[in-house]
Design a protein around this nucleic acid. Structure first.
Lengths: 189, 189
DNA sequence: GTCTATAGTGAGATAGAC
DNA sequence: GTCTATCTCACTATAGAC
């Protein structure tokens, strides 16, 4: 399938190995693809792990989570796009023959699953409004991943590179403030 | 190019016409693809048009914009995915031979451009914090488009269909509240 | 304007020498 | 483990009958 977005020709050019060499390490192109995807997912999960080491105020912890996610997506220009590409996969694959696929999926699923706990706790402890936890996660992930995948469209809007350190810093600030204020319980005052 | 995500074989099956028949209406598969994409963009733009007919309070107008965008994306299950797919196109195409491409792009660009005015006005008039206008647009678009493109991942999180009328309604509520509170200037109290 | 048949191209994958 | 050569197949596109 060509639905990975990259052909073996291009893989061969960039890796320096011939096309056929890859078939001695992976039984198919799809397996290679999922191996790559799996490592990307694992890297992101690893970047987020420190956030969960200690429980603190949910709002602070969510802020750390957002900043860690942004750092992970900003590290390589391809990461966010690979992540989104994963959503569009035609699930016509035969799962048995691609063990790396299950690995990639379970790691991916664990990312929002762990963040879920933070938002949940924020609602229960009353620091957040009574927001929908899944919708909030969708907004968090969507606003972050889309931004770093938006390419030319995003750069046209920003008027500069999405990945410059100033803009990455700016993104963290805008995101954390948006969700700090947007999720906070209204003060009774 | 197969980067459209769909082959002519599948197009033929679903349209009821043979593969070759399409070449009498479109000079290439790419032109057909951009014709489809262009109509999707035009439909979204048309859905958003009423929002700009009268200037009102920026916060109310942005709320209308979000709700209209959500309605447009919720109408067909493929819309949000088509939109995102557009971001990933390898721009190896020869622009001269595909007039529909320019059409699709200009319509797409006009969507955030028009919304930009609303957020801008909100900041200038002081109903919003001094947020970054482009980052806010990225968050708005990202949180909306990603959600309706998220497919199985989103449904696993929600525990049900993304496109059910209850969940669409819920999405509107969560999004409008998030941005109402998230962008609002802090009251001095 | 639609069809069948087919050409041309490039993809993923295999065989076998080194 | 990597290579060259080759196979097979699906895809885009064309030719020409109806």
């Amino acid at each position: 399938m060509g639905s990975t977005g990259v052909g073996l020709r291009e893989v061969a050019e960039r890796s320096g190995f011939s096309k056929s060499s890859h078939f001695h390490h992976f039984s198919s192109k799809e397996e290679l693809y999922f191996e790559v995807l799996s490592r990307v997912h694992a890297r992101i999960e690893k970047s987020l792990a420190p956030v969960f080491e200690a429980e603190s105020d949910p709002a602070l912890q969510l802020r750390s989570w957002v900043e860690a996610l942004i750092d992970a997506l900003a590290e390589h220009q391809t990461t966010a796009r690979l992540l989104l590409r994963g959503l569009f996969e035609d699930n016509d694959w035969v799962p048995e023959r691609i063990p790396a696929r299950a690995q990639a999926e379970s790691t991916l699923d664990s990312i929002p699953a762990k963040a879920r706990g933070i938002v949940q706790r924020g609602v229960v402890e009353g620091v957040y409004r009574n927001v929908s936890v899944p919708h909030t996660l969708q907004s968090l992930v969507g606003a972050t991943v889309y931004h770093f995948a938006s390419g030319e469209i995003g750069e046209a809007l920003l008027g500069g590179s999405i990945f410059s350190s100033e803009e990455v810093q700016r993104r963290k600030q805008e995101m954390t403030q948006l969700f700090d204020f947007g999720l906070a319980r209204k003060s009774k005052s």
